[in-house]
Design a protein around this nucleic acid. Structure first.
Lengths: 187, 187
DNA sequence: CTAGTTGTGTACTGATAGGTACAATGCGTT
DNA sequence: AACGCATTGTACCTATCAGTACACAACTAG
């Protein structure tokens, strides 16, 4: 008699929410659009995230952070610097789908959503820059240059995401990343 | 008997709207927040912009476009390339208040707001890149490199805005712009 | 000092926002 | 099969959303 219904758990929901926040932004991601796009009802959403939309976004940011910590920052600190840096560019291209997917943390930084998640946003970029600068130093780069070079690489990825989306041109994203990768190790 | 009230005209309103859209994004800029922050009532807003919020945002984008056309793109096409490029960096720093103000066009590009203003957004960046690449060629740079170098500069400004806001660090913005300015003319 | 035009405040609309309450459903255990 | 708990759909709440209507105020021209 009853229609089939899918049973989720929290871990399944977070990646779905991530895509929605990415596409619509925090303010644009309304509860009704979330239920509409995911097929998950309010009942489930508030069961998993009693804190509502803010807790949903926080959970998404936490998962993004975990991913980068595991696949980017930690390798930069631990592994052979040249290899880890090469992996960083490869992972960034894959994660952001060659510009087809934006950086949620960067997007949140631009509008007033920043106030809600200021420390999370700050940490995400700070740890990225620190890890990359450390790897550059270990690879023999003078510490005086390393920080600026690291900032430049991280900022370049964010800019490439903005520009490739603005021009709707994924090729630009790949081209920009290649160029930045070369510049990071040579100059 | 009557309290004093300010009389506006459309041209006065657009810059006020611009700041609000910058700070709150398109979705976050609700009519009530607009009236609250500007002191301009709905009556006036719908008098100037019968098309509502969308027309307000379009007017803001048009004004931004006009500003860049006049003070950045046109000089890049017309004036001595080295001087125009130097002026571009100076104007970008001033316009974006050393990272204290974001690029509305870039911000709109990131979320679904892009769909509403796709061609405007595309044009803004396309004309910037074209004008800069042209200036680079006129300054003696091989055409094969000029386009990529121009893309890199424009993308770098967008990235610097994201990162300086994320880290709440205006010094980073200035530092990044200085470095990019040097790299653009030397490499 | 009127007449017409350009602005403005206030009060309203229907739709949708985020959030709550809760009964019913499905699943793992025994 | 019956218990208990995690999960879910539905109905509902109040606040706020974008937008409309319109009478009124201010400036501008004659």
């Amino acid at each position: 008699m009853s229609a089939l219904r899918t049973l989720y758990e929290r871990a399944d929901v977070v990646p779905l929410l991530a895509e929605i926040f990415r596409e619509l932004g925090f303010e644009g991601a309304t509860l009704s659009r979330i239920t509409e796009r995911t097929g998950i009802g309010k009942g489930s959403l508030y069961h998993f995230f009693p804190g509502g939309k803010e807790e949903m976004a926080a959970a998404v940011l936490a998962e993004v952070d975990t991913w980068f910590e595991q696949f980017v920052y930690e390798p930069l600190r631990r592994d052979d610097p040249a290899e880890a840096i090469a992996a960083m560019w490869k992972n960034a291209d894959a994660y952001f789908r060659s510009g087809g997917r934006i950086c949620l943390v960067g997007a949140f930084a631009l509008d007033e959503t920043r106030e809600r998640f200021a420390t999370t946003i700050n940490d995400y970029f700070q740890r990225w820059i620190d890890a990359l600068a450390g790897a550059l130093v270990r690879s023999g780069r003078p510490a005086s240059e390393a920080r600026a070079a690291a900032e430049n690489a991280v900022l370049g990825i964010q800019g490439a995401l903005v520009l490739s989306r603005a021009l709707d041109d994924k090729a630009l994203f790949k081209r920009a990343l290649d160029q930045m990768a070369k510049r990071l190790i040579t100059s």
